[in-house]
Structure formats: structure tokens, C-alpha cells
Amino acid sequence: MIAIEALIKIVILVLVVLGIVAYLVLLERKVSAYMQDRIGPNRVGPKGLFQPFADILKLVLKEMIVPEKANKFIHALAPVISITVAIGALAVIPFGNYIVVGGQKISLMIANVNVGVLYILAMSSLGVYGITLSGWASNNKYSLLGGLRSSAQMISYELSLGLSLIGVFMINGTLQLDKITMAQSGGLWNIVYQPLGFLVFVTAAFAETNRLPFDLPEAEPELVGGYHTEYSGMRWGLFFLSEYTNMIVSSAVMVSLYFGGWSLPFVNYAHMAPNLAALIQVLTFFVKLGILIFIFMWVRWTLPRFRYDQLMNVGWKIMLPLAILNVLGTGAVLLAIK
């Protein structure tokens, strides 16, 4: 019974997320166009709303070219790793509290594991394998450079990513995302208590998702296409999808940890019918998610790319000390209050 319930939730989540991702691509093109005084895609369907289907159809129909001297197996495996870990990380995100179906409470998260955020960090760390392996297996110097850069970048920023979250765990005393959300639903959001930690986390999240200003693994002017230079068709599409899914995961973690997850301030769900409350909660969550994703895109179309040495400098000499300072500061304040 539990297995069936989980399976249904997984299928719904994957379908919803892939649908969102397809439209995020359109949104990104529209946002970039509007910021550059253009209109963007508006030909396929009304206002260009069917553009994602055209894009996907194109990707599916295109030939998947495999270089002659590539390691065929790993070349095919790498995009699968990327997309799997990207979607897998969504398993512990609470999109709402619970719904009631047939007298039974069904929680709106797939797996309520007690390591919570640690699981997400583990999954996003695995994501580096997809990129590094694709760079190595392509047997192409630019791909290899892109893969190497991505591994160096992810290791440098993972430290501050993890450290910046410790402040939140210290305040809420748990790693489980639903409990952290619950703790915030009554009072103030965590961003009020953890502004510095949030800034460090956002910066590190940009580096983790390989998006501008930290998209060095696929820096077009230097590396042709970076790690996916030798990919085409749907295999390239999988990398593309995983980039956007990673963006959803980072934004969802930010929403849950810093912006109160599915909760709204001054709204008491106890008086509502549970299913109506769940609907409002899910909508709240996705609106918050959308705003954060828009900020991701906004930053991307504002900032130029960092140089590689600048990236390393920022990671090790600024982000890491700031994250440690944040942990120490939070600890000192918590001790003082106690």
C-alpha cells in the first residue's frame, strides 16, 4: 500500500516537474528577450505557448551523434546520471502538508527521511559525476576541460553550500524539511534570522547549478559547448533538462529552508478543510518557487561570467570564511539567548 502510494506520488511529481521544466525553457527565452528589448518566441501556438513541444519534438527527432573514439557506454550513461540525481533530489521536498484521501492522511512529500537536506546535498554532489564523466567519455579536449572545471567548481562551492545551511539546522534543530517548514509556519521565516547564510547559499547554489555568473563548465566562448560539446539530440536534451531541474531543486530548498516552504504568514490552516488547505499550500509553494526561479534567470541575464581564478578566489577566500562566520555567529547568539 505504501509502495503504491509512493509510486503514484513519484509518477505525478516527475510528470509535473518535467512539464514545468519544459515551460521554464520558454520562460527563460522570454525573460532574456524582454531584458534585451526583444519579444522572444511567439510563433508556435498562441503567444508562443506551444514552443516547448516544438523544442522537445526537435530534440527527439535529431540524430544522437556519438564520437567514434568516445567511450560509448559512459557517453550514454552520463546524461542519465545527470537527470536521475536532479529529479531524485526532489524526493524529500515538502510541497504541502498533507491531503486526505479516503480517510487517510497522505503527506505531500515522497520520502520523509530523517537526514532530509543531507540527502539533497548528497544527490547534488553526485550530479558532478554526470558532468565529469560526460566530459571524459566524449574524448574531446573542450569537453574534458568543461568536466574538470565543473568538478573543481562543485567541490569548492559544496563546502560553503553545506556550511551556510548549518545555521538553519542550529535554529530549527532538525534536518527534515517538513519540520523546518513547520517551525517557520507560526513565526518569522528563516531568512530574517539567517540573511548572511542565505546570501552564501544563493551564491553557492548558482555555482552548483552551473548557471551564470558561474557557468564555467559550459563557457561557450572558451570551451565551445563545454562538457556537452559532443552531445546532440535527446542526450543533450537530458543535460538541458537536468540543468533546469537542478534550478528547481535549489529554489525548492531555498523556499523550504529560508522562505517558510508552503506556509504563509498570518494564515491558520487549522480551520480549513484539509484538502483546501493543501491546495493553498501547494500553490503558495509554487508561487514562491516561481519567484526564486525568476530571480535565477534575472541574475543570469544581468551578470557576465566570472573568470576561473576569480571563481576560485570567491569560493575559497570569501564564501567559505563567510559561511564559517555565519555558523559561529549563529552559535554565539543561540548560546546568548539560552
Binding site: 525573460v31 524582454y34 531584458m35 534585451q36 528589448d37 526583444r38 519579444i39 534575472w298 541574475v299 541575464w301 544581468t302 551578470l303
Partner: peptide, 18 residues
């Protein structure tokens, strides 16, 4: 960075040349 973002968001709402 915030200054740069304020520039791009103003461009976002400007009339388009297309």
C-alpha cells in the same frame, strides 16, 4: 549586482523594438 539587476528589470518593462 543589485544595481545591475535594477537596470535589467527596467529593460524588462520597456517597450520593445521588434
Amino acid at each position: 549586482i543589485l544595481r545591475g539587476m535594477s537596470i535589467t528589470i527596467r529593460a524588462f518593462f520597456r517597450p520593445k523594438f521588434t
